[in-house]
Write a protein that binds this DNA or RNA. Structure first.
Length: 488
RNA sequence: GCUCCCUUCGUCUAGUGGCCCAGGACAUCGCCCUCUCACGGCGAGUACACGAGUUCGAAUCUCGUAGGGAGCGCCA
């Protein structure tokens, strides 16, 4: 049985705790909490989950962990959805919202209490705080001491929390795909709260119920969760479920090696889109953080799917390096088909207030600009002159390149270009070198003034290609305008 | 404080006992190409955290030390 995506917003009722797993179809999930934007770390986790599911023809489930009613926002949910969509990490099921599954959690909690596997605790927050403070003072690990574990009475007027009865002895073994065998002593764990005094379930508990209900086979997440795993495993076992495969990914650090946080280098993945990065480049960069395939640096999405394996993932954290991302971005721009880049370029031009409609011209721009731009945004910025005549000329460049003979030289070139019927780069090239040769000038002495005249600056694709894209009429108009500006 | 995790060039990494006085990539620097800017080519410097042990032989195995990180919440 495969679960198909239920109609959006519908209450999920595929709660099948003891339902035997009928197939070994891989099922991964990405489970962000919507308390902020999706950043690069979250995207990498999502990518690994997605790749693993794709590689094994499994399902990638999206689950929104919004049990923290205080901090979850609809805007954050939308941001996450937009980020994943931009990256192309489409999910097969979901998004499922934990807030829509409260009834299910409540049932499981009751089941646990009835089975003697959980109990109500009437401690006040103050009481717990005091307990922790005392333990810390004694140099002990702060943890709940189980004072209500064996009680069955209640405190009138006090709303209790529900705690999971964690085993007191023995050990929990997490066979992690990335970290290997990690052993935890149950004596180090305490009875964690699974339902707050207002009745709402807590994170660690919801995760367990969801992973079980959604029949997740591979839990791939950040290794900041490694410490949570033994608790979750104990609950899973108490619910009679079998454990999924765990893979705890190393964290991504900021450029300086410090933890990536909101105020420290972490930005929304959508910002990378705005800065002109291609999603496939960002994914390529991310897949190489903690994973490698020999010396290969460049991966298409297809190659990633084909080659990625969770068992090859590294254990150590890695620092985010924009320079390498930028290099990869250019590599992807250069290797992609021009038609792949055109819509992105158009989007960035649009943001500059330029409405570009000529598809063929845009393709030419991509072809001539992509090796001189590291991002599509940079490409757009460098290409503005194709759409808008320069409003002025780079002064320093004028001083350097516009000598007394330049106006006459431009007139000569303009005359010859005017005769040209075949407005193509090779023919334009012939004219320019012919004029330069006739005047016994190196090509640069002529190309730079022309460039300055049509672009306003000294940077552009090769001059023949530039003029070819610009078109005959526009080229002649700009040459004429520059000539009069420089004749004075 | 306690528990758990991590440690190869500045950065991402290759490396699973001899092929490694450590390979690739980004970045840096130099040279070449060149109509600008790039792309591209060639080259240079830079790393096995430290200490013991096992072994004929260790980046690779073991132990310890140091450093970094995570968790210990009625946050996720």
């Amino acid at each position: 049985m495969r679960l198909s995506a239920p109609p959006s917003g519908g209450l999920l009722d595929f709660a099948l705790p003891n339902f035997p797993r009928l197939s070994m179809t891989v099922r991964t999930r990405f489970a962000p909490s919507p308390t902020g934007f999706l950043h690069i770390g979250g995207l990498r986790t999502a990518l690994f989950c997605w790749l693993y599911a794709r590689r094994h023809a499994g399902s990638f489930v999206l689950r929104i962990e919004d049990t923290d009613l205080e901090r979850s926002t609809p805007e954050a949910i939308q941001q996450i959805l937009d980020g994943l969509e931009w990256a192309g990490l489409e999910h097969d099921e979901g998004p499922f919202y934990q807030t829509k599954r409260f009834d299910r959690y409540k049932d499981v909690i009751e089941e646990l209490i009835a089975g003697g596997k959980a109990y109500r605790c009437y401690c006040s927050k103050e009481e717990l705080e005091q307990m922790r403070a005392q333990q810390m003072a004694r140099g002990e690990k702060p943890r709940y001491d189980g004072r209500w574990r064996e009680r069955s009475d209640s405190l009138p007027g006090v709303a209790p929390v529900v705690r999971f009865k964690n085993p007191l002895t023995g050990e929990v073994v997490v066979d992690d795909v990335v970290h290997g065998r990690v052993v935890f002593q149950n004596s180090e764990l305490d009875d964690l709260i699974i339902a707050r005094s207002d009745g709402t379930p807590t994170y660690n508990f919801c995760v367990v119920v969801d992973d079980m209900d959604m029949q997740i086979t591979h839990v791939i997440r950040g290794d900041d969760h490694l410490n949570n795993t033994p608790r979750q495993l104990n609950m899973l076992l108490a619910l009679g479920s079998q454990a999924p495969v765990y893979a705890h990914l190393p964290m991504i650090l900021g450029p300086d090696g410090a933890k990536l946080s909101k105020r420290h280098g972490a930005v929304s993945v959508l910002q990378y889109r705005d800065e002109g990065f291609l999603p496939e480049a960002v994914l390529n960069y991310l897949v190489r953080l903690g994973w490698s395939h020999g010396d290969q640096e460049f991966f298409s999405i297809e190659e990633m799917i084909q080659l990625f394996d969770i068992t090859d993932v590294n254990k150590s954290a890695s620092a985010f390096d924009v320079d390498k991302l930028t290099w990869l971005n250019q590599q992807h721009m250069m290797r992609a088909s021009a038609s792949r880049i055109v819509p992105v370029l158009r989007w960035h031009l649009d943001r500059e207030g330029i409405l570009a409609t000529d598809e063929a011209q845009l393709e030419e721009i991509v072809r001539s600009q992509r090796e001189r731009a590291k991002t599509v945004r940079e490409m757009a910025l460098n290409s503005v002159f194709f759409f808008r005549a320069p409003i002025g000329y780079d002064e320093k460049a004028v001083r350097k390149h516009v000598t007394a003979d330049v106006p006459a030289l431009l007139a000569e070139v303009a005359d010859q270009l005017d005769q040209l019927t075949d407005w193509q780069a090779p023919a334009i090239h012939q004219i320019i070198i012919r004029v330069a040769a006739a005047k016994d000038l190196p090509l640069g002495k002529l190309a730079q003034p022309i460039r300055l005249a049509v672009c306003g600056g000294t940077v552009s694709p090769p001059i023949d290609a530039t003029l070819a894209i610009l078109g005959k009429a526009e080229t002649l108009a700009r040459l004429s305008k520059a000539r009069s500006a420089w004749s004075a």
